[in-house]
Simulated scan of single mutants.
Amino acid sequence: MAIVLDESAWPLVTINLGDQFDRETVDEYIAYWEKLLAGKTRFGIMMIQKGERGERPDREVTKLYMDWCKSHKEQISRSCAGIAVVTASSKLLALYKPVTALSTKKVYGCPGNVFAGEAEAQEWLGALLQKNQ
């Protein structure tokens, strides 16, 4: 399994995609999204990003994922309260913080934000889940 999932704080789901954003990872990630979207409960996603990203993902893999997001955006916006990205990298935090809200809304149709720690991300997602009930 390329991704690590933690549903112990449901409806808050923690996902760690690891270091590779390859075809196997994307296939697993899409399958998990489809499982989440098939449920009737709103959820929030906390993405754990370890360290700096290495190589850029393969263009074909990125296109596959973006096409899937585009075709499921309406479903995602109804079911997902928000997506919080957690990164320990101050470089990535500074890079992503200004653009994450806009890009997440554009791609997924739901709120997005970047945090340096999991506690902050959980608090933010918890507030969104409460608000959307």
Rank of each mutant, 00 (worst) to 15 (best):
L37Q: 01
L128Y: 01
V86M: 00
W124P: 07
V85H: 08
V99N: 05
I76A: 04
L128R: 02
A81Q: 02
Y32Q: 04
M46H: 07
M1Y: 11
Y108M: 07
Q20D: 15
A101L: 09
Q130K: 13
I45P: 06
A31S: 03
L95M: 05
D67C: 09
T100S: 11
L17E: 14
K73Q: 08
Q122C: 15
I30W: 00
G117K: 11
K73R: 13
Q20W: 12
A2R: 08
Y29V: 07
N132C: 09
I15G: 01
I45K: 02
G44E: 05
Q75A: 13
E118Q: 12
A116D: 06
G18H: 04
K35F: 08
W33N: 05
E28P: 11
R53K: 10
K40C: 13
K35D: 09
E118A: 09
T62P: 05
I45M: 14
I48V: 13
G82R: 00
K91C: 14
S89C: 07
C69T: 06
E28C: 08
T100I: 09
A81L: 05
A84H: 02
W68T: 01
M1W: 04
K97H: 10
G18T: 03
A116L: 12
R78E: 14
F21D: 01
V114W: 03
Y108L: 11
I48A: 04
E60D: 13
L12T: 11
L129S: 01
A9L: 10
F43P: 11
A31L: 03
T100E: 12
E55Y: 05
C69M: 12
P98G: 01
I3C: 05
R23T: 10
Q75T: 08
A101S: 09
N16Y: 04
M66Y: 14
G44R: 02
D67E: 13
L17G: 15
E28Y: 03
A2L: 10
N132W: 05
W68G: 03
A116E: 14
I15Y: 00
H72N: 08
Q20E: 14
